[in-house]
């Protein structure tokens, strides 16, 4: 991971050094972005910006970003957890009843094609009446997160061989016990990649949700605020983006923490969750 970060930093600075400051334009279409200081500030500029106060006399930027991260992390975690639970329940229901699978799966897929910007105002309307405003953002995060879990888990629950299912039948185990003893453990190799996708989706959902519902205090809001100052203070918006990336890493780390003890003795199946 450290190596990955180093490579990313090298690519950034490398492109800055080698790329055309005005960007590369082919047939009137800009195929490569501008590499000037306004579009791509040096990493050290961004680093320095983190240490400086947000506004003259204000708190340092890193503290503001960190606080915003924590706020958004709470929203993301709530959305991720809710989305995971919904995804698991849907997957179990679809596994249990073929009719549910056939009736529901197309809608599960369809749900992800509804543009978030169209949905956000509707959900934002629940804020203050049905739930506190921050929870509406969690709903949006959950809405994006449940999908990979539902689809991945369904495949996992359907993965045991006929032999395993027959064995449980010979033990007179019903659906629930077969689920607990056979299907769920068998599904774990499918679940974790799905959880990773869901975690990333929850972060995106939370950030975009904050922006489109106008929720204050989170990293999404900060990105919008700082990007307004992009012309005068280009490094500032990148500090907020670093914060968003940090969130993604945190969530991925949490999934790995869960995965490590559970998957130590397991073969890792190659799965494309979608």
């Amino acid at each position: 991971m450290i190596a990955g970060l180093a490579v990313a930093a090298l690519l950034w600075e490398g492109y800055k050094a080698a790329g055309d400051p005005e960007g590369t334009v082919l047939f009137g279409v800009r195929v490569l972005p501008r590499a000037d200081d306004l579009s791509m500030p040096h990493l050290w500029t961004i680093g320095r910006r983190l240490a400086d106060p947000e506004m003259t006399g204000g708190r340092p930027v890193w503290l503001v970003v960190l606080q915003a991260c924590l706020f958004t992390l709470g929203i993301t975690a709530a959305g991720f957890a809710a989305g995971t639970v919904i995804g698991l329940v849907l997957a179990a229901a679809m596994q249990r009843f073929r009719i549910v699978e056939r009736g529901l799966l197309p809608y599960v897929v369809l749900s992800q094609t509804v543009p978030l910007v169209a949905l956000a105002p509707l959900i934002a309307g629940w804020g203050g009446t049905l739930m506190p405003p921050w929870a509406t953002v969690s709903v949006i995060a959950a809405y994006l997160a449940f999908f990979p879990v539902a689809v991945g888990m369904l495949r996992g629950l359907q993965s045991p061989s006929a032999g395993g299912v027959e064995l449980m039948r010979s033990y007179a185990a019903g659906w629930w016990r077969t689920l607990v003893k056979l299907r769920f453990p068998a599904a774990l190799p499918y679940l974790f990649p799905a959880l990773r996708l869901a975690g990333a989706a929850a972060v995106v959902g939370a950030v975009v949700g904050e922006i489109s519902t106008g929720t204050r205090g989170g990293i999404g809001r900060l990105i919008i605020e700082y990007s307004r100052e992009a012309t005068s203070d280009p490094a500032k918006v990148y500090t907020a983006m670093l914060g968003a990336a940090l969130l993604g890493l945190l969530v991925a780390g949490a999934v790995s923490l869960l995965e490590l003890p559970l998957m130590r003795h397991r073969r890792h199946v190659e799965v494309a969750t979608l």
Binding site: G163, G164, S170, Y171, A172, L182, A186, R266, R267
Partner: peptide
């Protein structure tokens, strides 16, 4: 349902976890 028998089939069918 009353578990009158035990089976061992052609494939071992062990739970890998």
């Amino acid at each position: 349902r009353e578990q009158e028998y035990g089976i061992a089939f052609q494939q071992a069918g062990l739970f890998e976890w």
